[in-house]
Design a protein around this nucleic acid. Structure first.
Lengths: 256, 256
DNA sequence: TTGTAGGCGTTATCAA
DNA sequence: TTGATAACGCCTACAA
């Protein structure tokens, strides 16, 4: 490329990175020839030299298709995308390779990782630490090891409950999330939210709510609604831990 | 790294790529030290030397969030993911950067691109050609320039129509897709499908179907169903161009 | 303003 | 089986 334009490699490099440092004529010639030849700086060579790839990876522990169905993640990606754009970087979605993230991590030429919903004691995270790739946890359990951004489960739940209580509702229903499959205990997120509800209920001296567990789907929410007590013990407000279940409740209650 | 283990760079390279070519003892030592140091071959350097990155990019013309909501694309990604896995490669989702794909294309260190639903005359494609990155078109209009894999709109539509006709149905309804926003004509895919329906209808000498246009959503499908003629002119079979609309019809018809 | 040369971390070729 | 050495293509002091 440098040869074709009759200039040095420096000139070419300048043309693409710091055009100001180049004379008008040279710049134009370089760009002209570059266009004709379809020349583009080789990303790998660039990354090698600069020690940065301009790419930030998103670790996706689940199957790609699961991610696509998840509304929370979709919105997250939208925000991520915009942010990354502002910094002229690229987003690299890294799904598991051969069922594990480890291999995928090594392949990816990435300046840093954002890890979605990965358990803080996941082996992949340890690998990242050893390699020394900066990593931020999103939607994971807190961990002193890594910076993390998470949902304020307790606070959000308490605010939701307070809202209903403020409106005067005292007969509430709580739609829980199903327990973890393996240990049949509440997920950490669920127990935090429950604590939030209870804090609000205690503050208002409200009676215990009707509790029911339902999956995070609209039909499950609708079924939960149908299971509510009827008559005068009928709940007048519903707290659902899952958005999808909440929508199901709205549908079953004829509210939309 | 080579120094730390007291071996040459070649030994390290062999340890990670062709372990058989290394003596038992050396191999173990290298891997041991590598683990302690958290060493991993630098992906960019590797790519530079090998002239391949082990990454195949997927060009996503739409907003990322749109993709996540699209069931067709989700399934496509699942298949892509599995295939890519078999070849020990990684999938790089490349959304537009600064609103255009061009920038993103240059950043990405990719061995080839799969372009989703990109118009064959898109500028980005021309860029790829000039740069010389092999590209396959998926779900685009046919083009002699690029290998492409597409849905057989006409064939599929004709098969669907023939199925209903074979079953004896003669009073059919067709749920069309909305026209393109800008030109208010049928999308190419829609017109191909329509042609497929008509071919089947002609072959069976069937009367013209009841036609209605609906968006590609379940509620739109349900509304379309409600708009059908009642009584003896009631359609007995429905051909929907959109899966989602078809599901909406099923729901409205009480069939699930 | 432009060119020269060295280094980024690998892999590949060729000897030892 | 191992080691030295030259690419790979770019960026960046430094020199001209």
């Amino acid at each position: 490329m440098a040869g074709a334009a009759g200039v040095s490699k420096t000139a070419v490099s300048f043309a693409f990175n710091t055009p100001d440092k180049l004379g008008q004529a040279t710049l134009e010639r370089v760009l002209q020839v570059a266009h004709e030849l379809g020349y583009t700086p080789h990303p790998a060579a660039r990354a090698l030299s600069l020690r940065r790839s301009g790419t930030i990876g998103v670790l996706i522990p689940q199957r790609l298709s699961t991610v696509f169905a998840n509304q929370f993640l979709s919105e997250l990606f939208q925000g991520l995308g915009e942010l990354v754009e502002e910094h002229d970087m690229t987003l690299l979605l890294v799904p598991p390779l051969d069922g594990s993230l480890e291999g995928a991590i090594r392949q990816a030429s990435v300046d840093g990782f954002i890890s979605l919903g990965l358990s803080p004691d996941d082996a992949a995270l340890a690998t990242l630490d050893r390699i020394g790739i900066p990593t931020v946890l999103v939607d994971s359990e807190e961990s002193p090891e890594h910076p993390a951004v998470n949902v304020d489960d307790a606070g959000g739940a308490e605010a939701a409950a307070r809202h209903l209580l403020d409106l005067g509702h005292r007969q509430l229903a709580v739609i829980m999330l199903p327990p973890t499959r393996s240990q049949s205990v509440l997920t950490p997120a669920a127990s935090r939210r429950l604590a939030g509800y209870q804090a609000a209920l205690a503050a208002f001296d409200a009676p215990a709510p009707y509790m029911v567990t339902a999956g995070a789907t609209m039909p499950a929410g609708a079924r939960a609604f149908d299971s509510f007590p009827k008559g005068k013990r009928r709940p007048t407000g519903v707290l659902a831990m899952s958005d999808m279940a909440a929508i199901g409740v709205l549908g079953a209650a004829g509210l939309r």
